[in-house]
Design a protein around this nucleic acid. Structure first.
Lengths: 168, 168
DNA sequence: AAAAATATGTCAATAATACTGACGTATTTT
DNA sequence: AAAATACGTCAGTATTATTGACATATTTTT
């Protein structure tokens, strides 16, 4: 009973007079599709660079994010990381454990508060983070190629403006 | 045998003289961390708006992307969609089927090539796409609030420059 | 007309990332 | 001593994605 019981061939208009939209959705100019789609495609391609590198080492995007932020803020705690990534403790657990077991990150008990695990990158962890950031940075440089300093400031301001207000 | 065999407490520096980086990764100024991180946070918060709406209707991000692009280009085929989303046919299949079964999208056999399934949004599908786009657009408008037309052009150009070259 | 290519669908198995809820342990604060 | 905190872990589940193989309808090529 396999195969292609291709509904469309039998009934191109199944529910009879169901109204279909053949016109492009414009939102009457009230929706900024240019930016919405620009962000989607930009981000899709932006993360494809590190994805290709990660695929060879058996890691995924979650590992990338962890190794990135630990390198950017050495000594950050697990709680800091959870807050930055906005994921749950359980989601982070496996990824972080794998990075520690593979020698990319190490934990050190907090000097004041010994309940905390302060996270630090090893030399290899630093190298990985840089290797992942490099193609992304090249892509960014290419995008800014013939733009001026004001243009760059506009982009930085825009990206900041897109973010939720910091809670702390 | 449960519980917390907290490695960090026993051996804060497990591999002995393993070098840890306590310094912030700067990339010697060769890596554009400001934009890399700006993009990450901006995108993370940008997709959190529709996520909240989708959660109530039992759909996920994949459904969002499909319903969005079908609305933006009614009559697109399955192949078009695969090319836009850069996912596999199998990944798309379930999501598309659910949207069709729920009455958000309909298929019509291609008038010239009857192998093709041309995809069209129903009225409900159009409404969903607009409802999802609205908070995103509001966020974008807020980000552009006190920026001028040139700033906006810079952002558009930047987002375009971040994308891979079109293959066709 | 037969063969090949194309567009799509489907089955099976699997992986990565994420979630909720509950509970355990070490440590610090009250 | 009790409560709160930081972290880890177990169990179960959901979503999104993957690869590979194969089926069907249709169109194009030979």
């Amino acid at each position: 009973m396999k195969g292609n019981d291709n509904v469309a061939r039998q009934m191109p208009d199944k529910h009879g007079a169901e109204e279909l939209h053949h016109d492009v959705m414009t939102g009457d100019g009230r929706i900024d599709f240019e930016i919405i789609e620009g962000l989607f495609f930009a981000y899709r391609d932006f993360i494809s660079d590190p994805d290709a590198i990660l695929a060879t080492s058996g890691f995924g995007r979650a590992h990338h994010r962890v190794v990135h932020f630990v390198n950017r803020e050495p000594g950050m705690t697990v709680a800091d990381l959870l807050d930055t990534l906005k994921i749950t403790k359980q989601s982070l657990a496996r990824v972080l454990k794998e990075l520690i077991d593979s020698g990319y990150i190490q934990q050190v008990a907090g000097p004041e508060d010994r309940r905390q695990r302060k996270l630090y990158p090893t030399r290899t962890g630093r190298e990985l983070a840089l290797a992942l950031a490099e193609p992304q940075s090249r892509r960014i440089a290419r995008a800014f190629e013939d733009m001026n300093a004001g243009d760059r400031r506009a982009v930085v301001k825009f990206l900041a403006g897109m973010q939720n207000a910091k809670s702390d």
